[in-house]
Write a protein that binds this DNA or RNA. Structure first.
Lengths: 339, 339
DNA sequence: GTTAATTTCCGAAACGTTTCGGATTTTTAT
DNA sequence: ATAAAAATCCGAAACGTTTCGGAAATTAAC
């Protein structure tokens, strides 16, 4: 591996000059610069980023802590799409991504903060974390490097967040059901340690109250954000609230589970029960019946997170919060209540 | 940021001793070690991985060049599942992943080799590359760091590859159709710059010939590995080869496209035409009719790639090639030929 | 022709570790 | 008590860059 020294020797100049020549400083004669570049080429030199960042303190690297990068996440490719967005924007702005192996199985011995500090990332994006994550608080308080949280509403000097408007989205979903004549509307929510679950429940209540219906806590079931959880929740609904004619699910995956249960129990969607989901995962457009849902732009979530983080890094912004809009996608799983 | 020097000063020892104490060398008294650890804690010291790797030449980082991490890849989450596998195994073995921003839009100015060398990754995993990728050859020839290729059959001193047995898989698929009485079987293949396309075509031919049918090149259409490509190819098949009763698609995504066309043209799957795909993406189990396909274990692909690379890094293996098995999943899109 | 300004270069320190080789102290063996 | 062995520590160099402050050489100004 050729180093800057080798070049200096061969070109007959000092390492300083080589460094400055290669980095485009203007206090080096164009002829010497040309020569140096020539030599660099001959030795097929490539700069050592490690050495460089040791002195410059810059790594042009963003740490990624995405806790739900796992096999199960393949169905809703949520983490994936977020990652794509981050990857694209970071790539454009010339940052590389360091994916930390947050191993959820073996108890992690190092905090996210420690990971990021050690590796000298300039900032981090965290996604998929539960509100009760033991290390989350530390990241926010330590405040030692800029970071942006996805779907966790904390802000601070050094921490920003981006999320889509779950409350409004949920209200939109429920209003869609209400407008179609439904009055007995259950909800299958995600686990309570997700900010979005809480928001979506608020949106659910809000819409109902707009129609003069007081939301009944008992109609909100926990589907754990999983397909099986959704299936189980739907089963409970059928047993305990047989008069329900429509269900709002806080994720498409749970909606898929709910539809599975309904099919098994001989109920037709949407004839007997209308189902609306949240996310718009790719399966939703292919399953049968096709799922009505609230589309969340997950790619944009990642894209904006990267943009925001880098803006913070290069302090171009004071903005610490970004709220994206969602969109109602009407397909086949909901219809006007038949009397 | 506390450094090793700060600890040395505060603890009244040399930096050498601090380093050796913290790294568990046994030539340091247990009492001093305890004291040093105590001081380190007080200063909330965390080692600087950059400095460390500058001297040790080790970064415990694997470079990832996955060219198809993009929005479009969300449907078949191929890249995603591979990534999960890599992430899990690398995490277990304590390597971090550096995701290079291979920006396909703007012409990349740096080769993969340059990227990897600069950032001092210890090895790399490349996936989703086309055989005609301009930088692929360089990676293989330069041979400057260990790397494993996914779905590209090159090997060398420093380069290994892992892939699933596309040829056998394809033959399995086509044999399934043959066994169900089909004799006029078309194929919708991916683009020709993918190794797997070539292999799957070979498998297709092989199976046909086993049944005494000579494969007709004209029955193999190019679906470009995309849904729209598959749809278009199916359209061509209907026009040019109306007697075809079954189609083998080299990816589920193309199969989905083919089914879309068939539906639009009023043909029933599988009554009029049987369709079999390849991959087993998640949509395949939900679409209607559910897709018969050849399951590829994408997660395992990534998992084994990481394992193999790290084995190479820590030279525990001479193995440079890994072939995974596929599996026929019979669902609803194929059936016995009706006469 | 002298001085000032500009251009072009360089030495040395710094970044935070690891590690080699040896030095010092303590323990053990005789 | 002395020599040998073991335990514990440390100084200094090294990794490959960047950058500060200034030196030397060239050009411009008068």
């Amino acid at each position: 591996m050729a180093t800057i020294k080798d070049i200096a020797k061969k070109a007959g100049v000092s390492v300083t000059t080589v460094s400055r020549a290669l980095n485009g400083y203007d206090d080096v004669n164009e002829d010497t610069r040309k020569k140096i570049k020539q030599v660099a080429l001959e030795l097929s030199y490539s700069p050592n980023a490690v050495a460089r960042s040791l002195v410059s303190k810059k790594t042009r690297t963003i740490g990624l802590i995405i806790s739900d990068i796992n096999r199960a996440g393949a169905k809703d490719a949520f983490a994936y799409e977020v990652l794509c967005g981050i990857n694209d924007r970071a790539g454009d702005l010339n940052y590389d991504l360091l994916l930390f192996s947050t191993n959820p199985s073996k108890q992690m011995e190092k905090s996210y903060t420690a990971l990021c500090k050690e590796r000298n990332v300039e900032g981090a994006i965290l996604s998929g974390l539960r509100l009760d994550d033991p290390y989350l608080q530390e990241v926010i308080e330590q405040n030692s490097f800029p970071c942006v949280l996805i779907d966790i509403p904390k802000t601070g000097e050094n921490v920003a967040h981006v999320t889509s408007d779950s409350r409004v989205g949920a209200a939109m979903a429920v209003r869609h059901l209400l407008e179609n004549g439904h009055r007995h509307i259950a909800m299958i929510n995600g686990h309570n340690q997700a900010f979005v679950s809480r928001e979506r429940f608020e949106g659910y209540k809000e819409a109902l109250e707009q129609y003069g219906i007081s939301a009944n806590e008992e109609l909100a079931y926990d589907g754990k954000f999983s397909e099986d959880g959704g299936a189980e929740a739907m089963y409970q609904i059928l047993i305990r609230n047989p008069d329900v004619t429509a269900v709002f699910c806080a994720s498409d995956l749970m909606a898929l589970g709910a539809m599975r249960t309904l099919e098994r129990m001989g109920r037709k969607v949407p004839d007997d029960v209308s189902i609306i989901g949240f996310d718009d995962i790719s399966i939703s457009a292919y399953c049968s019946p096709k799922l009505t849902t609230i589309r969340q732009d997950k790619y944009e979530l990642g894209y904006q997170a990267a943009q925001l983080l880098i803006d913070m890094l290069e302090n171009r912004t004071d903005n610490r919060k970004l709220l994206l809009n969602n969109q109602l996608i009407v397909r086949e799983s909901t219809q006007r209540l038949q009397e």
